[in-house]
C-alpha cells in the first residue's frame, strides 16, 4: 500500500471537512438567527445531499476543472447538510430558561451566541462533524474519477487489472479509516456531552 495515496485521501477528507465547518457553521447560525433565511438554508443543504455524489463531483469538475479542488468543493457541498443541520438544531434546542436568563442579565445577541449558545451546542455540532467526516471518507473514493487521487485510485486500478488483492487492500483501508474516525470521534462526543449537560 502506497503511503502517499493514503495521505492524499486523508488530506482530501480533512480539507473538505474543515471547509465544510467554515461554511456550515455560519450557515447554521444564520438559519437559527434569521427566520427568513431558515427555510432556504436548510432546504438547499438538504437538496445538495440528494444529488448522487459522482454526479455532483462531475458537475463541479465542469466548472472548476479536474483536480483536488474539485473534490474538496464537491465534498464540501455534500458535508454541508449534517453540519448546518446540527448547528441549527443545537441552537434551537437550548433550554428556554437558559436563553431567558442570558437575555435578562444583559448579554447582547452576539455575546449570548458566543458565550452560551454555541458552547452549549458544540456537542451537537461535533456530531455533525463526525457524520460529515465519516461520509467523506467513503465519498472521497470518487476523487479519482475527477483527477483527485486517493484510495479510489487503488480500487480502480484493482478493478482494471482484475487484481483482487489490490481491491481488497483499498477497501479494507477505507473501512478501517471510517471505523477509526467514527470510534474516536464518538468517544470525544461522549465527553463533550457530559460537560454541558445541565
Amino acid at each position: 500500500m502506497n503511503t502517499k495515496i493514503l495521505l492524499e485521501h486523508l488530506y482530501i477528507v480533512f480539507a473538505s471537512v474543515i471547509v465544510s465547518i467554515a461554511a456550515g457553521l455560519p450557515l447554521g447560525v444564520m438559519a437559527s438567527l434569521y427566520r427568513p433565511l431558515r427555510k432556504p438554508i436548510l432546504w438547499i443543504s438538504e437538496l445538495l445531499q440528494t444529488v448522487p455524489a459522482l454526479a455532483l463531483l462531475g458537475l463541479v469538475m465542469l466548472v472548476v476543472g479536474a483536480g483536488k479542488t474539485t473534490v474538496i468543493i464537491g465534498l464540501l457541498l455534500y458535508s454541508l447538510l449534517p453540519i448546518v443541520h446540527n448547528t441549527y438544531l443545537g441552537l434551537e434546542t437550548i433550554d428556554q430558561g437558559i436563553k431567558r436568563a442570558a437575555r435578562g442579565m444583559g448579554m447582547s445577541r452576539l455575546d449570548r451566541l458566543f458565550s452560551v449558545e454555541l458552547p452549549l451546542s458544540f456537542p451537537m455540532i461535533f456530531t455533525g462533524i463526525r457524520i460529515a467526516t465519516v461520509t467523506s471518507v467513503g465519498i472521497a473514493v470518487f476523487a479519482t474519477s475527477v483527477g483527485g487521487g486517493g484510495l479510489g485510485s487503488i480500487i480502480n486500478q484493482g478493478i482494471r487489472t482484475q487484481n483482487m488483492k489490490l481491491i481488497l487492500s483499498g477497501t479494507l483501508t477505507l473501512m478501517a479509516m471510517a471505523v477509526i474516525f467514527d470510534g474516536v470521534m464518538a468517544l470525544i462526543e461522549k465527553r463533550l456531552n457530559k460537560r454541558v449537560s445541565a
Binding site: G97, I98, A101, R103
Partner: peptide, 21 residues
C-alpha cells in the same frame, strides 16, 4: 439601552438558567 438597563437589574427565574458550560 436595554442591555445596559438589564445589567443594573438582577434577574432570577424559576428555571434558574445557570449556564452549564
Amino acid at each position: 439601552n436595554p442591555v445596559q438597563l438589564r445589567r443594573k437589574i438582577g434577574y432570577v427565574i424559576q428555571e434558574i438558567g445557570l449556564f452549564p458550560n
